[in-house]
Amino acid sequence: MRIWSLHPALLDRRGLVAGWREALLAQAVLAGATRGYLAHPQLERFRADPDPLAVIGAYLVHLADEADARGYRFDASRIRMPVRDAERLAVTTGQLAHEHGHLLAKVAEREPARAAALAASDPAPHPLFHAVDGPVASWERP
């Protein structure tokens, strides 16, 4: 499961689609609607919030907005709590840089032309997150 902390505009088509699918899975886990992925480390940051379903809902809303801007059709009715203005979560600059490098490696394989533009971009956070100085997150797998 990869729930990107990066702004959805940075994701290539495959990253955006996979991110949508995986965030929907995370939503199901947080809602207690599935038995898989219960201990997935990336869910720690959502579970730490008093209202994890609202937070993952806000995350999904912004992915759906990016999909709409690109002319894709994501079924936003699948978002259990489509909150646009949830309280923002912190993400470290180290985590953003780590994810930016990870995404760049994936995009370089899939869409080399897009990789050059991505390499020149700053690792902006998803609108749900705000950046704070710090290392790679403790939940990140090496």
Score class of each variant (00 low, 15 high):
G15L: 03
L128V: 05
H126T: 04
A137F: 05
V83L: 11
A67G: 13
D65L: 06
S77Y: 02
I56T: 07
I3Q: 13
V91K: 14
M1Y: 14
A115N: 06
E109L: 14
R70V: 04
G71D: 09
P123Q: 02
Q42W: 11
D49W: 10
M81H: 12
A76F: 03
D133L: 10
H100V: 13
G15M: 05
R13H: 11
R2C: 15
P41T: 05
A116P: 06
E66L: 03
L11S: 04
P127F: 03
A90W: 10
D51W: 09
A76P: 01
W4G: 04
L16W: 05
W139C: 02
L53P: 09
A113M: 11
S5D: 08
A108G: 11
A76L: 01
A105Y: 15
A90V: 11
R45H: 08
L118K: 07
E44L: 12
D133F: 08
A108N: 05
Y59C: 08
H40C: 06
L30G: 05
R80I: 10
G57F: 15
D133P: 07
P52Y: 13
P142W: 08
A90N: 03
G32A: 07
V132W: 15
A18P: 01
L63C: 07
H100A: 01
L6V: 06
E66T: 07
E99D: 14
A64N: 03
L10I: 10
E109N: 03
G71S: 09
A28C: 13
R2Y: 11
A64W: 06
L89A: 04
A124Q: 11
P82I: 02
E99A: 02
A116G: 05
D122V: 10
L53V: 12
L53N: 08
R35Q: 14
V55L: 07
V17H: 08
G71Y: 14
I3W: 09
Q95C: 02
P142V: 09
F46K: 15
P82A: 00
A117F: 07
L53Y: 12
M81A: 12
E111M: 02
I79P: 00
E99I: 01
R35C: 13
G19D: 02
G101D: 00
S121H: 09
P41H: 05
P127R: 00
P112S: 06
W139S: 09
A9W: 14
Q42F: 11
P123M: 00
A137T: 10
G32T: 14
A120W: 00
R21D: 12
R141E: 13
A116H: 10
E66D: 05
A9R: 15
D133A: 15
R88C: 07
R2M: 14
A131Q: 03
E111S: 05
L16H: 09
Q42K: 10
A131K: 02
L104C: 01
V91W: 09
D85T: 01
A97W: 01
F74P: 00
L103C: 04
A105R: 15
D75W: 00
H102V: 13
E44K: 13
E66N: 01
R47E: 02
D133H: 11
A18V: 15
R84P: 03
L6G: 08
R47A: 00
A108L: 12
E66R: 00
P52K: 13
H98P: 02
G15Q: 08
L118S: 04
L6N: 10
E66S: 01
R84K: 05
S77T: 15
A23M: 11
L53M: 11
A105L: 15
R84Q: 10
H7F: 04
K106V: 14
A39R: 15
R80W: 10
D122F: 08
R14T: 12
